[in-house]
Design a binder for these strands. Structure first.
Length: 415
RNA sequence: GGAGGGGUGGCCGAGUGGCUUAAGGCGCCUGUCUUGAAAACAGGUAUGCCCGUGAGGGCAUCGCAGGUUCGAAUCCUGUCCCCUCCGCCA
């Protein structure tokens, strides 16, 4: 949610930032509605003040009761109007995305994304790397038909060493983040209410990308971000407790209503996958550099796994709804011959704090402010599995397990 | 799923239609006293919004949302959450 004060005080700045994202924001209408709202609030307050004054002395006279009856009716009318205006205002504001930061490349889509760092030392191989789906079918570590059979397209089953590899990865990632990067591990629910989904920015605009249970009105989480963001909803966090750094390993459920045939091979784009998610609540005063820190935390995992990676600065037209700045971390898959997005790291400024009403008390006192929130995968598991199967393939057709994972897998090769 | 009990400020807790502008206690902050501290005493101690350059003034909020009333923490309805018991259950 954008701040109404900012829209009213600096309308042209806000308009330009949203135009950069490809939006056509109804700024003038918002300002007009807010001015109407203010007038109604003022009139209502004055009438209520009058009524309170009369009520304060005990039982009023019959004349006063008659007068207050009409005052009460006018208050009711104003309240109805006010509710209508505020409803319209809320509808307009709740669908406006966050404002991109100045550093974000301006551009309509992913064509304008910029590779800002490249950590990929290409390894020359004297054999052809088998794509992960072929390797997995040959060795039996994925069972794609079984997944499709029980759940439909874009569901999959991991078997044997495939399942163990994924489990080793998530355990290892959580250990690195909690023991070395300073995150607190959270095991959240995988289904949440509409309020929480709205607070993260996934509702109301992206309802059709998620799974929903009608009977209890619960949504399956598309990422742990939506749960971590709501962890302190409605709270005023005590001074000195920020930053709060959380990490969670959860399944992620997405409808993936993309064009049929796109990214259909293997487990790259699926309707349920596992992910380790990093999340931070910070004092806006100290938010500088936090995104870089989280990027470093994600890159650290790629480095330790020995995977070639690169970092992209996403353009204004490609960052997500709640984000003010996003970097994508990709790893190279030499068998499928493509870059795989394994983490998307975003600074959401105070956009989610405002929607979840998560505030903090500044050090040294003063009135509360909205927290800043940042999130990023650390990392998405199926794609890391893919990257390991292709980067660690040997000439004899086996895959060796990265050193750091061996204490977790208990085996050192597949195939 | 069924039956019952409950939700009041940072915490505890009183409050069954109007002297409630939410008592009282605890905690915290400031001051007096003290060499310092404790104790005692005095004052202060929520959030949001509106008006005002400001000093300041006003409105709302007793889980949440509606309703009844001149007037609601208090009465009514719905809803969320917590507790006890029954049922079901890894």
């Amino acid at each position: 949610m954008l701040s109404i004060e900012q829209i009213v005080n600096d309308p042209e700045f806000v308009r330009q930032k949203l135009v950069d994202r490809g939006e056509d924001p109804p700024i003038d209408q918002i300002i007009e509605l807010d001015s109407q709202r203010r007038a109604l609030v003022h009139e209502g307050d004055e009438l209520r003040a009058k009524r309170n004054e009369v009520s304060r002395g005990g039982r009023p006279s019959p004349e006063q009761i008659a007068e207050m009856r009409s005052v009460g009716e006018r208050i009711k009318t104003i309240e109805v109007e006010q509710e209508e205006i505020q409803g319209k205002l809320h509808e307009l504001l709740i669908v406006l995305p966050n404002l991109p930061k100045d550093a974000v490349p301006v551009g309509a889509d992913e064509e304008s994304n910029i590779v800002v760092r490249d950590g990929s030392a290409r390894v020359e191989r004297d054999f052809e790397v088998e794509p992960n789906w072929d390797f997995a079918e040959r060795t039996g570590i994925f069972d794609l038909p079984a997944g499709a059979n029980m759940s439909g397209a874009r569901f999959y089953v991991l078997k044997g060493k495939g399942a163990a590899l994924q489990r080793a990865l998530s355990d290892w990632m959580l250990d690195v983040h909690t023991r070395e990067h300073g995150y607190i591990e959270i095991a959240p629910p995988f289904m949440i209410r509409s309020e929480a989904m709205t607070a993260s920015g996934n509702l109301p605009k992206f309802a059709d990308t998620m799974f929903h249970d009608e009977e209890d009105d619960l949504w399956l989480i598309p990422t742990a971000e939506v749960t971590l963001n709501y962890l302190h909803a409605g709270e005023i966090i005590d001074p000195g407790r920020l930053p709060l750094k959380y990490v969670a390993h959860t399944p992620c459920f997405r409808r993936e209503r993309t064009a049929a045939g796109r990214d259909t091979r293997g487990i790259k784009r699926v309707r349920q996958f596992e992910k380790v998610e990093m999340f931070q609540f910070v004092d806006p005063k100290y938010s500088e550099g936090v995104l870089d820190e989280m990027i470093a935390d994600a890159i650290d995992l790629c480095e330790r796994l020995g995977l070639p990676w690169r970092l992209l600065a996403l353009a204004t037209g490609d960052i997500s709804f709640q984000s003010a700045q996003t970097f994508d971390l990709e790893v190279w898959a030499p068998g499928s011959q493509e870059w795989l997005e394994v983490s998307s790291l975003s600074d959401c400024t105070d956009f989610q704090g405002r929607r979840s009403n998560t505030r903090f008390r500044p050090e040294g006192g003063g009135s509360p402010g909205y927290v800043n929130s940042l999130n990023g995968s650390g990392l998405a598991l199926p794609r890391i599995v893919i990257a390991i199967l292709e980067n660690y393939q040997q000439a004899d057709g086996t895959v060796s397990i990265p050193e750091v994972l061996r204490p977790y897998t208990g085996f050192d090769s597949i195939g």
